Simulated scan of single mutants.
Amino acid sequence: MSPVVSSSRSSTILRSAGFAVVLLVVLLVTNLLFNPARFQPSAWGTLIGLAAPLVGAALASAPVILGGRGGIDISIGPQMGFVNAVVIQGIFLSAGISSPLVIVPAALLIGAGIGAVNGFMATIIRIQPIVATLGTYLVLTGVTLTILPAPIGPAPEWLKAMSGTYSILPLAVMAIAWWLIRRLPYYDQLMAIGSDDRAAYTAGVDVTKVRFIAYVVTGLFAGIAGLMLTALIGSADPNIGQNYTLIAIAAVALGGVSLAGGRGGLIGAAIGAIDIFLLQSVLTSFNVSTYVLQIAYGAILVAAVVLTAVQERAVRRAL
């Protein structure tokens, strides 16, 4: 990929996330005014650790959405919760294994395996993605509660450090992985099938294979997000993962990723997630109830989808 094309794509992604970028500036200034101590440089590690699971969930949600044709994975949250339960209950406490050389690959394999199952159902059996991943959502929720009926802990010390001093590392790994993917022909194929899968198929793109890989990538990223969630809470909780599913999708939409596929990118998804985190921070400063937070998430999702639709129509008219 040439530097010119790469630069053009990056600028296009940032333009599609224009509303999210403006909102980011507004929310950041508001947070600095009302809660400056929380945003001091000395607290950045902890702050990133707090935001990391949501950002990770948003990044995980994006690849299948970019593939178009209703591609979506609503099992991201339960995948994170399942990884959290297996790592703490199964590997650390039951097996007595604390080494990152075991725990990290296990989380990635779990995520990739779940992503492959979702991809098989959605692309090969051709079950509607929302139905296929809803089934996975319910199965994982039930299995997680079966192996972990109640919260338990603690987590390994090295993992808990990932919510503080080293909180940027998992996000950096995801960023590097996507940066590498963007330099492969696969990325062009993913965006092509997201924009027009029939034209891509006519051009010789293996649409099924490309979408299947997108689900596997989503699963891998969900595995990393599950580790970040485990680092944040420092234990295992069977009920916490589900909370991230719809918020992550709202973040993706807010970040300018078209839910129809083929437009946007993970930079926008990350900005959208940071916006939601900063909104949470502002509302929490005012002691706003969780019910108001849910209303805010819904309003953000609707506004983001409407703005994205308006922008897409404007682009079509310009062409």
Rank of each mutant, 00 (worst) to 15 (best):
P3W: 12
V5G: 13
V5C: 13
S7P: 05
S8W: 09
T12I: 15
L14T: 12
L14V: 05
V29P: 10
T30Y: 05
N31M: 07
L32F: 11
L32Q: 12
N35Q: 14
G70W: 00
P78C: 07
M80F: 11
N84Q: 10
A85V: 02
V86A: 11
V87N: 12
S94L: 14
I97W: 11
V102F: 12
V102D: 06
I103Q: 01
A107R: 09
I110D: 00
N118Q: 08
I127Q: 13
I127G: 05
V139S: 07
V143L: 10
T144W: 00
I152Y: 00
I152G: 01
E157R: 10
K160V: 09
G164A: 14
S167L: 06
V173Q: 05
A177S: 14
W179C: 06
L180I: 14
I193F: 04
R198T: 15
T202F: 11
T202G: 13
G204F: 07
V205K: 04
F212I: 01
Y215S: 01
V216C: 06
V217S: 11
L220M: 11
L220P: 09
G226W: 02
G226K: 06
L227Q: 01
L232V: 08
I233D: 04
I233P: 09
I240C: 04
N243E: 03
A248K: 05
A250Y: 02
V252W: 02
V252D: 03
V257K: 00
S258F: 05
G264S: 07
L266E: 03
L266W: 01
G268M: 08
I271Y: 04
G272C: 05
D275C: 15
L279H: 04
V282W: 00
A299S: 15
A299P: 03
R313H: 08
A314Y: 10
V315N: 03
L319I: 09
